[in-house]
Computed example of a mutant assay.
Amino acid sequence: MKKISELFIGTNNKGKIKEIKALLPKGIKIYSNLNFKIKSPIENGKTFEDNSLIKSKYFSKKTNLPCLADDSGLEIDILSKAPGIYSARWGGKSSDFKKAIKRVYRELNKKDKNWKRKKIKARFICCLSICFLEKKIVCVKGKVEGLISHEPKGKNGFGYDPIFIPIGKKFTFGEISPKIKYKMDHRFNAFKKIKKFL
């Protein structure tokens, strides 16, 4: 298969666009919704893979370009893997992650009043897919294991980064520099599997 020379990043999330651009090979001409202003599709899949493919097919058809889309979220074991595919929706209509993080803490308190004394296992999952029109080119999954911080820390990153401490580290994704985060997170792990197509 010939390498892709142009790619549309199928998301309206500026944080994701920035991170995906940083991971992509330099020779690819990148378009994003900053150029096109297309409304996002309804994500009614049952899995991260489903939602990633819904987005990459939809944006590819709208732009006539190969499209890379990401569906990602946080799974917390004690909450039966919630928020999972609903990670952004926990922030309400405007995907306000301050609200979403408060909800995580509310749900943890409901589940176990003493949760702060325990290690709360969690992981970030990322599914990346590339589609051209209706055709799926590739769909891969990456993840990074970690623990939930007792309070939000750090101003870097986006989404749930301030409450996620990757395994083996003392800092949240919100506290470490983007350069370091981009080399270890779920999106990077998914990218390693997708590289040969780019």
Rank of each mutant, 00 (worst) to 15 (best):
E43D: 00
D96L: 02
F191E: 11
K196G: 13
Y31I: 02
K61F: 02
C67S: 12
K3N: 15
K81V: 01
K14C: 09
K153R: 15
F36K: 03
F173E: 09
I28P: 06
L79G: 00
G146D: 02
E43A: 01
K181D: 00
T63K: 04
N156L: 12
I101M: 08
R123C: 12
K192Y: 05
Y31L: 04
E175T: 05
N44D: 11
A100T: 03
G159N: 10
E145S: 05
M184R: 02
F171R: 15
I30E: 04
D77T: 14
F158Y: 12
S60K: 01
R89S: 03
S56T: 04
G146C: 03
S149V: 10
K46T: 14
I101L: 06
F173H: 01
L198K: 08
I54R: 09
W115T: 13
I42K: 11
F188N: 10
L108Q: 04
L79S: 00
N109F: 09
L53Y: 06
Y86A: 08
G91E: 02
K29L: 11
L68G: 12
A22S: 15
G174C: 06
F124V: 10
I180H: 10
E49F: 12
L53F: 08
L74M: 06
K102P: 07
F173V: 03
R89M: 03
V144T: 09
D71V: 03
L74Q: 06
K141D: 05
G15F: 04
D161G: 10
K118D: 02
N64M: 09
H150G: 12
L65Q: 09
L74F: 05
I85Y: 00
W115E: 10
K81N: 12
D185E: 10
I38K: 01
I194P: 05
F8K: 01
S72G: 01
K183M: 07
I194E: 03
L108P: 04
L133D: 10
T11C: 04
S94W: 02
H150N: 15
S5W: 10
W90A: 01
V138Q: 03
N189D: 09
K118I: 00
Y105N: 09
K192F: 05
K111D: 13
N35Q: 13
K153G: 06
K195V: 14
K16S: 05
F164L: 13
K14L: 15
F48E: 02
D161C: 11
N13K: 09
Y182G: 14
S72T: 06
I101W: 06
